[in-house]
Amino acid sequence: MTKPVTRRALLVGAAAGAVGLIGVDALRGKLSERVLSASQSLTIRTQRILLRRRPLVREFSPADISVVFPTNGTTRPVGDDYGRLAAGGFSDWVLRIDGLVATPLALSLAQLRRLEARTQITMHNCDEGWNAVAQWKGVPLGHLLKLAAPTMRANYVVFHCMDKREDGQHYYESIDLFDAFHPQTILAYEMNGRSLPVAYGAPLRLRVETQIGYKNAKYIGRIELVDQLDRFGKGRGGWWEDADGAVWYAGQ
C-alpha cells in the first residue's frame, strides 16, 4: 500500500519544484548560449579538418546559370549617398581596407577591375532552402588581403555594408582568415558577365562559397581587419547573427 501524500511532503515537493524552476530560469540564457557555441565550435573544427586541403566547391557550366536568380535582403539601399554613387556608375565609390593591416588600401572600382580576377559559376544556397546558380567575377579576397598585409593580431575580416536594415543598423558580416583565403572567396563586381546589378549588391559583394547565403554581404563599402568581433552590433559577428540568432559560422 502506498502512504497518502502528507502535507509536509507536498510542501517540500512544491518548494523543490520552485527552486528547480528558478534554477532552470537563471541558467537558461547562459546554458543555451553555451550549448549553441559548443555546437558551432564542433562544426567549425570538423569542417576545418575537411577543408584543410582547400577543396573547391562545385563549379557549373554556363548552361546551368539560373534564368531568374531570386533577390533577397536589401534590393536597393535607401539614402541619398547610395543613390548618388549609383547614379554616377559608382565612379566615386571607394573600397577601403583598414584595421589591423600594415598597408591600408583605398581602391576605386576601376582599380579593382585591373587586379587579378577569378570567374566562377557557383550555386548560391539560401538558408531558407532555395538556391540558384550564377556566374561571378571578382578579385580573390586573399589577393587583396596580401596587398594590405594583415598584422599578426588580425583574426577576422569584417564587411561593412552601405545598406541600412529596418532596425537602423548597417548590414555587416564577418568571416575568419581561413575562409577569407579560400581560392573561391572573391569580391565580385560582375554577375553573369555584366556589372553587378543593384539588387544583387552593386558595386561590390562578397562570394564566400564555402558558406551559406547570408554570409555573402552585398553593397560593401569598407573591409576592416580585427582581432575580436564583440565591438560590432551585438557582438555576434553579423546582422542576421545579431537580429535573428543565426549561426556565425555557416558552413553547414
Partner: peptide, 15 residues
C-alpha cells in the same frame, strides 16, 4: 521564434 536560432538549434540537436 527566430528563424536563425531555429537553424542553430537544429544543428546542435543534429550533433
Amino acid at each position: 521564434w527566430q528563424f536563425g536560432a531555429m537553424r542553430a538549434w537544429h544543428f546542435a540537436l543534429a550533433w
